[in-house]
Amino acid sequence: MSSFAFFLIGGLLLAHSGYSSYELHQFAKEFGTELKSIPSDITLETIAGIMIVVIAAVGSINKASKLSINNEIVPPQNRYLKEIEMKKATKEHETIGINDYQGFESRISFIDIQKKRNEFSDWIKKEKHD
């Protein structure tokens, strides 16, 4: 959310400085004057806009915390990037309890829910009888 605000501010600054530059060039064209250089306020605004957008881009790649299988919030190991060494990368999976390929391993969309529920209710009934 905060990076969105930064993107917005930077974009507005760039748009404003672009419009100022456009007006300046139109003015120069209209009166036939030769522009020697861009005024320093437009330059500064452009540089500020570029810097804010870039900071927003760098800040927006941060990683969110994850919910572990024990219902605990696990913060990411590093705020921005992920460890590439196998032993460090899998440490996070162990604390969370699932890995990146959990979707392929458990195949949620292929589970026959009704069959599973029937099996469970049969088992419950059997337990109650015993």
């Binding site: 760039l14 861009i38 957008v53 881009a57 790649i61 990037l81």
Partner: peptide
């Protein structure tokens, strides 16, 4: 792959923004 993607994103935004900046400064 994930780190590469993040780096690529930063590079893309940077190059496009610098292009806009140098266009504005003519």
């Amino acid at each position: 792959e994930s780190n590469k993607k993040d780096l690529q994103y930063v590079h893309d935004v940077t190059s496009l923004t610098l292009g806009i900046g140098s266009g504005i400064l003519t």
